[in-house]
Write a protein that binds this DNA or RNA. Structure first.
Lengths: 221, 221
DNA sequence: TAGATTGTTAATCGATTAACAATC
DNA sequence: TAGATTGTTAATCGATTAACAATC
């Protein structure tokens, strides 16, 4: 069985429809980040060597990852940024526009709402919520701050696929519960709260301090 | 040679002084995050199963990772959170206090300065910088906002090991250059800017949008 | 042509998993 | 004791790397 799959892949480089392994999907996502930014800077091509410097992923592995789906590069030159972006988006099936609801209109919430970091990758913050009645109704950018009670309706109307939590740890679980109830399957948690959710819901917790500890280990050692 | 090393490890479970592999160090850092938060919630023990739910790391691998350094768990019970925290900190050699300089006193900078997310892991923001003369001198929490020109002196005086960039993309490279000049070896970049630094400096770029794309792939597939 | 960089092979190494005895 | 969970083995799978011919 394994042999058969290997033969198929050898014959047909792109196993379209096959589910990518976790590792490959994670790496492709990171290439996307660098390519997006390199394009913004006016670059037209990039080599696996350069991609490696920015992602800390071995250049051979980058070439290997990409060549599994087709021949996207030009020997002696590198990869065309624009076309590689399109190819990877196609592979990840994330070419579309995706709507985000943001929770918490404090410093962090405002920073996220005004940052290009999500917009650059096809995510749009279409709604902001806050539990503080004094803040509800305010405008942040072009968005009015909603009360939490409007969540269910907004999620349905605006086709929201991701909830981003920029609330204090104490408030995070309640918002998560409401998101789950409204049918949202991906939660991005900027608080340190450990969230309890049903198995079909994915929580990604941002952990800058953990990333720092990790970097520090290699600096100290 | 390989056989000799394997024998040594079998005899002496904790290869103290040995450099951890990237993967192990990354996973240990993540256990630290969950343990820290679980302790905050008043928990006293935790099982590999629970750790797995919060980290998305296979429970067998968690037990394997830990048992490589000693027998920290109790069968039928789980791991004592307090003592496991101490053990992992010892393994990662990051038990101490580490000083951070924060750049950018805008929404994101203020959010970071006021968040417990770094403090919980032994990082303290000891200095804030901003390039806007109108902001320099203001107080954020208990810290006065410095001008960028004071960077070199502050890094030396306050033993700063990490620079956190919460500045617009356009300003990030200049701050990075100054940090490098001042001898800082770890830069945490919250902007989308691709930073050019010498090889001995580590840049970690925060990429929430990339993490979201990754989560979305598995949701859509 | 000369230099650069991809695509690909082959070999190794580490991650992952299932399973289960040990033991709290 | 019965139930739970660790520590550990053994087997498999995927990641990683060096090397280099192909080719722009």
């Amino acid at each position: 069985m394994v042999d058969v799959i290997e033969e198929l892949e050898a014959a047909e480089p792109s196993p379209v429809g096959e589910r990518l392994s976790l590792g490959v999907a994670a790496r492709l996502s990171r290439y996307l980040q660098v390519l997006t930014q390199a394009r913004k800077m006016g670059r037209e091509t990039i080599s696996s060597q350069e991609l490696s410097e920015y992602t800390h992923i071995n250049p051979t592995q980058i070439r290997r990852d990409l060549s599994g789906f087709g021949k996207f590069g030009k020997r002696g030159v590198g990869y065309n940024i624009e076309s590689l972006l399109a190819e990877i988006r196609k592979i990840l099936r994330t070419s579309g526009q995706h709507n985000i609801a943001l929770f918490g209109a404090g410093n962090l919430g405002q920073a996220i709402a005004n940052s290009p970091i999500f917009a650059d990758h096809g995510f749009e913050v279409v709604a902001i919520f806050d539990s503080d009645p004094a803040v509800v109704g305010n405008e942040i950018g072009e968005l009015r701050v909603h009360a939490l009670d409007e969540l269910q309706a907004v999620v349905a109307d605006d086709e929201i696929v991701v909830g981003v939590l920029a609330v204090p740890a104490e408030a995070a679980q309640e918002v998560a519960d409401r998101l789950v109830k409204a049918g949202v399957k991906i939660i991005f948690n900027y608080s340190e709260q450990l969230l309890q959710v049903p198995p079909e819901v994915t929580v990604h917790t941002s952990s800058p301090a953990v990333d720092l500890l990790f970097a520090l280990y290699f600096y100290l050692a």
